[in-house]
Design a protein around this nucleic acid. Sequence first.
DNA 1: AGGATTACAGAAATCGATTTCATGTGCAAG
DNA 2: CTTGCACATGAAATCGATTTCTGTAATCCT
Lengths: 329, 329
Amino acid sequence: MATIYEVAALAGVSPATVSRVFNDMRVSEEKTRAVRSAAQSLNFTPNRTARSLRKQNSEVIALVIPDIENPFFTSLARGVEDRAQEAGFSVVLCNTDESTAKEAKYLEIAVSENMAGVIVAPASDHSDLKSVLSRGKPIVSVDRGTGYDIDGVMVDNRPAGRAAATALFDSGYQRVACITGPLGIETADERTRGWRQTATQRGSYPIDEYLRHANHRVDGGRAAMIELLSMPEPPDAVVATNNLMGVGALQILSEAGMAPPSVGVAVIGDLPFTTLDPATITLVHLPARNLGIAAATMLIERINGDTQPPRTVVLRNEISRANIPAPTE
Amino acid sequence: MATIYEVAALAGVSPATVSRVFNDMRVSEEKTRAVRSAAQSLNFTPNRTARSLRKQNSEVIALVIPDIENPFFTSLARGVEDRAQEAGFSVVLCNTDESTAKEAKYLEIAVSENMAGVIVAPASDHSDLKSVLSRGKPIVSVDRGTGYDIDGVMVDNRPAGRAAATALFDSGYQRVACITGPLGIETADERTRGWRQTATQRGSYPIDEYLRHANHRVDGGRAAMIELLSMPEPPDAVVATNNLMGVGALQILSEAGMAPPSVGVAVIGDLPFTTLDPATITLVHLPARNLGIAAATMLIERINGDTQPPRTVVLRNEISRANIPAPTE
DNA sequence: AGGATTACAGAAATCGATTTCATGTGCAAG
DNA sequence: CTTGCACATGAAATCGATTTCTGTAATCCT
């Protein structure tokens, strides 16, 4: 592992000059050539740790997400990456598994590794961002809010919940249940609120008995759907507040021979890896990739010195309605 | 951002002593307390960049994968993470988007950031690992081979291809096509070879006309399936050599009203987010998570100083056959 | 009791880059 | 012909930790 000193020695110049060559500062034609060829022959690349220690920053941004196995977050990650690449940054992805402890650890690493900035999809609404904020590191939250006054990129969750429920009622379903995520996760809470608003207006059934909390994964959706089906008066339609729980619910319904439209299903989020007929199911699409792009854009502006007050960007989502009506009873 | 010097000053000791406290070396009870309380009140955490520069390593391992949007790789990533966590390492994930250029860049970063080691699922069979190897950094390849003599964890690809094709012939299908990945990707090539072996034995049709190369993603599977269906004599069954292309093929078949079993489908890989009836489709399960666990285990052994000659571990995969026979013509 | 060992702690060197400061050279302005 | 300034360059300081080296005091052994 060649160092700058060895390159300097071989090229017959001082280390400072080598550094200057690699940082595009003024160095004579002649020495530049000498340095480059020396570096070439020693296979030298600057040690980023040393550089980062001295410059107090790096060209890496951390993306902290709660569930790497969820296509929503991987798609978001792609957005972040694409934008970051353009601007010359690399992205490292940290998976917190919905644990605020792991999250705190990764944030801690991000600052103490002098990363340029952090994009976080918080594990909960009481995530601890102090370690990052107290160092003044640029940070942007995506998807979920934080309780701190920082930049954020969100989707309009409550309207999404309303839209999902409304579509089902419009199709003629009567008892629209809801499978939502754990309490304390803003996106889930807001979408649920949207569902409840609509259900209260349009339904005449004990609404909150048809609400189930699950774990935001496929197995959670399955368990919740099973519970709902075992009710004395089961729902005839269901809203799933995220993609994976939607998959779980659909799996149970398919296995029970009750696939849509015999039971109505609306999912908030996309189902990129299913083979379902889009006409049988209502999807409230979430612009995951754009979320990533927007977050990365804001973060990079901050890294480049933007100091305007924190902003929150809210992205719209788009619904694709099932166009098959509920079976009439 | 408090430094070790400020802590030392506040605690009335030397920086060396502070360092010793934080590295569990012998320090008197009394000074230990002083240091800890000083650190507490200054909100001190050691700067990892400085530490890593001095110690010439870090507790971070890099996981370099070609497609973060593919559930196979995210599942693999989970395996790596779980194992790494246990051993006190953090994992950063780098997405190469199947590009050897991006891959080389991330590998470069990994070494020059003094990471503890690298797990790589190579973007191609001519990936350039020299930057890592020349520094003697521990490295393990997963899923795909590299052409270098290093540790690796693979699945038995050719048998997987054979099993998939065999299952379809056994179900009574006659013309079993194959949708495979780009040339130069070992897993794809080997699985294709397995399919070809079986097809040559059991089929009587111009086999290689029923082979399609696609891009390992859903759209690739779709395009290839469309091509196959437009042949003068379309196949009555198809093997997809990875999960996403399988999804694409299934989507096209569903849209065309030819979903299994009317056309037989075998997929090498898992389909965690589908709602398909497992009885209608043959799956050759790949132990993605175990691949990750095995790779991380080997890497950590190397990091801890294991110097035995490079090993290759081959994991078995398990088939779940469709139990619905082909429609008789 | 005296030499050997051990435990503890500080001073200073070190990791590999960047950056400040100082120096020497050449050229233009006065 | 000076004075002054821009420019290229090297020496040395710096980033924040770890680690070696050294010294002192306490403990152990015969």
